[in-house]
Design a protein around this nucleic acid. Structure first.
Lengths: 132, 132
DNA sequence: GAGTGCTTACTCGGATACCTGCTGTCCGAGTGTGCTCGG
DNA sequence: CCGAGCACACTCGGACAGCAGGTATCCGAGTAAGCACTC
């Protein structure tokens, strides 16, 4: 169980978009080049972020992607859920009486991680980079 | 990114072994039957737990598996690491200057989850089941 | 009665097959921008 | 000078291929317990 590379691409791309202008969109080619991914593949990933309502795409010449929310609203968890899905990390499909005690513990642990990711905002990292 | 079914099997099997006698081993067939898995597959999973030093196998007639540690020492994290591996959930293989800020946040979140899993012990669940 | 050997029950490990999901590519379609050309 | 039309740059979405890893099965080998049989 690992996070997919797509999640990594998505996080880095969002960070780049936060640093960029909120008005003028950034092209996929430029975003892909800075990460060493193929533009077509990155486009596929960004489509998921668009559907999640985090960014919006501008087609046509000088098109690209830009944020559709305020920077402050974007958490790690939002991006991860948009890419990986909202499904629980652990699912016990056995039929015990009542609920599975093991699953309960796993979900607690998962929520510990998620609460940290929900509190972490990408904009904080962007500011750090600017300061450096 | 999800936990594998093997992890679920391993956790349930360990819980069954904790409830069972610490001396007399439990056969794979019995363990597999209670979870609806094939014995050969479960055997493969348990081999990993053996290599991790959590249980030991007894071959021959009336053989099977039994704990090789004290019940109190067995945490969720031990089992998960034995099955899923110790690798980090998130790896950023890009070459930024210094370390990746994003990866740092992800590792913090991962550690939040792991610390919870390390503190959670299977023996507590076993007791709950006995009480019920 | 004791010891030897056979049968049986069980795990071990490797090899193998299947399938799902991630990763990545290709291509046709749609869309907006800017330029050109004719009136 | 103005507007229509064209070429270009760019994203969108589906279809498709490759690959890795999880899931599961099969089979031969090793091992210990229990029983029978012989001396």
């Amino acid at each position: 169980m690992r996070f997919s590379k797509a999640t990594n691409y998505a996080l880095h791309t969002m960070l780049a978009l936060i640093d960029a202008s909120p008005v003028k969109p950034v092209g996929v080619q430029q975003l892909a080049e800075s990460q060493g991914v193929s533009p077509t593949y990155l486009s596929k990933i960004l489509t998921r972020l668009v559907k999640a309502g985090m960014i919006e795409s501008v087609s046509g010449a000088n098109g690209g992607y830009r944020l559709s929310r305020k920077k402050d609203d974007i958490t790690f968890l939002d991006i991860i859920h948009a890419i990986e899905g909202n499904a629980s990390l652990f699912e016990c499909d056995f039929v015990h009486g009542d609920e599975c005690q093991i699953q309960a513990v796993m979900k607690e642990a998962e929520q510990k991680m998620e609460s940290h990711l929900q509190q972490a905002k990408l904009v904080d990292l962007a500011q750090k980079q600017v300061q450096a």
